[in-house]
Write a protein that binds this DNA or RNA. Structure first.
Lengths: 108, 108
DNA sequence: AGCTTTGCTATAAATAATGTAGCAAACTAG
DNA sequence: CTAGTTTGCTACATTATTTATAGCAAAGCT
């Protein structure tokens, strides 16, 4: 599937409203998990593969490419890392972590 | 695929860490879009179908079931609507809308 | 009673993700 | 330098997910 770009049609919006492009990008398998993990620090391809226990290299590679094209991650000497924008984005999603703990109580 | 439940293995975590279960749930096609849309007010199945321009009824129905089982949406006389928890969650995701506008400038 | 709207199911075709193997390039130890 | 190791992938077959289209039963008008 095409990489979601604001201004182009994406899943959820023919006009490519920025938030829709973002939801499309982040709503692909593992995308948020990768961002979540990389916030802890740069990581190699193989480390990411271990972390995302059941991701295939094919998919990991695709996600990484999309996230790089979207300027959320960059390659460094230490491997893949969040860009400045990627870190900003993580900080927006971070509160989900705590909220999820309360939410989890519904399932007891 | 099984509905992600905190405490059970999900994509990204064998232990089912709550945040991972949440990312799995929200990371499915259209899930965030549905939450995003419902914040504006209750909506019928057909209205949601129109809004999510290219969702199939099969997938919409699956997503709705998952989100209901996860206590994020409920059925009302006016159709599907966010639950209290769903509204809380939306409010956590809301900042993405503004952030995405700045992010979109990278693609000009 | 007839027409419309709504919520959905069925089925087939297309697309995306997994699982496994493996390879070329860069790095490391001897 | 040279024989492993590690790393970042690509290939390919299988399985899972999503789409697309048709259509139906129930409820709500008129």
């Amino acid at each position: 599937m095409a990489i979601p770009v604001p201004g182009q049609p994406v899943r959820g919006s023919k006009s490519g409203a920025p938030v829709m492009a973002l939801l499309d990008l982040l709503g692909r398998s593992w995308a948020m998990g990768i961002v979540w993990h990389l916030y802890k620090g740069p990581s190699t391809f193989r480390k990411l593969q271990e972390y995302c226990e059941t991701i295939s290299p094919t998919t990991l590679n695709k996600r990484l490419k999309e996230l790089r094209d979207s300027h959320l991650i960059v390659r460094t000497v230490d491997g893949y890392a969040l860009s400045q924008q990627g870190r900003e984005l993580y900080e927006l999603i971070e509160p989900l972590g705590n909220w999820a703990k309360g939410w989890a109580k519904n399932f007891k």
